[in-house]
């Protein structure tokens, strides 16, 4: 009886330790985002960065874990959540932060100035890259990476922007294996950024 109880206690202890190890933030090796059936090549486009300089997306982000997101500054609901979640992972994994490129594209060039985009991103991480361009350049960029083009409706109080709600992730090998829709949990981000960072180009 005593032996049984001890065994049970030991088993329980082992289970607790195993569970704790699983939850300690080490990656599981499997992607938890929305995995694409066929990995997508990185698209190519040129927009203007917050310094006013041209930014060639494909060449600037070559060999880097890259996260690409299209949004706009007056979006208080979902845009900040994605960026804050990514910033939180970087806070805890400085190695990832050094290697990764986070690129936010404002699809609302009429309202969002380069300076405002910079201020917005500095709320999260001053290393985040901010881009915008003309409506034509933005349409070309969205087409190049395969997201539905953002649409701007109305003005004043009725003003709203429909935009893709997901973040596209590219591994350092230049391929996108997964995307991150709104509602992605912090634990999924933490896992997947580590898994993707390990997919080096050969």
């Amino acid at each position: 009886m005593f032996a049984n109880k001890t065994t049970r206690l030991l088993l329980l202890l082992v289970a607790v330790v195993v569970l704790a190890a699983c939850r300690s933030g080490t990656s599981t090796g499997e992607l938890q985002g929305t995995v694409l059936d066929v990995p997508q090549e990185k698209g190519s486009f040129v927009l203007t960065d917050t310094e006013g300089a041209p930014y060639d997306f494909a060449s600037e982000t070559e060999d880097s874990l890259t996260l690409l997101y299209f949004g706009y500054l007056e979006c208080p609901d979902i845009c900040p959540v994605h960026l804050a979640q990514i910033a939180e992972v970087f806070d805890q994994h400085s190695d990832l932060a050094r290697e990764a490129k986070v690129v936010f594209v404002s699809v609302d060039p009429d309202l969002d100035t380069l300076e405002e985009i910079r201020e917005f991103l500095d709320n999260f991480d001053s290393r985040f890259v901010g881009l915008t361009g003309t409506h034509e350049e933005l349409a070309a960029a969205q087409e190049a990476v395969g997201v539905p083009p953002a649409r701007i409706f109305g003005e004043g109080d009725e003003y709203t922007v429909d935009h893709a709600g997901w973040v596209i992730a590219y591994a350092p090998d230049g391929l996108s294996y997964s995307i991150y829709p709104f509602g992605t949990r912090q634990t999924q981000w933490t896992n997947d950024l580590q898994v993707l960072a390990a997919l080096e180009s050969e």
Binding site: D77, P148, A150, D157, E158, T160, D162, A164, G165, W166
Partner: peptide, 18 residues
């Protein structure tokens, strides 16, 4: 203060309406 709702369209884009 305004009342808003974010919804997801068929093509996956998100929209916010009052």
């Amino acid at each position: 203060v305004e009342f808003h709702e974010t919804t997801t369209n068929d093509d996956g884009t998100m929209t916010m309406q009052p």
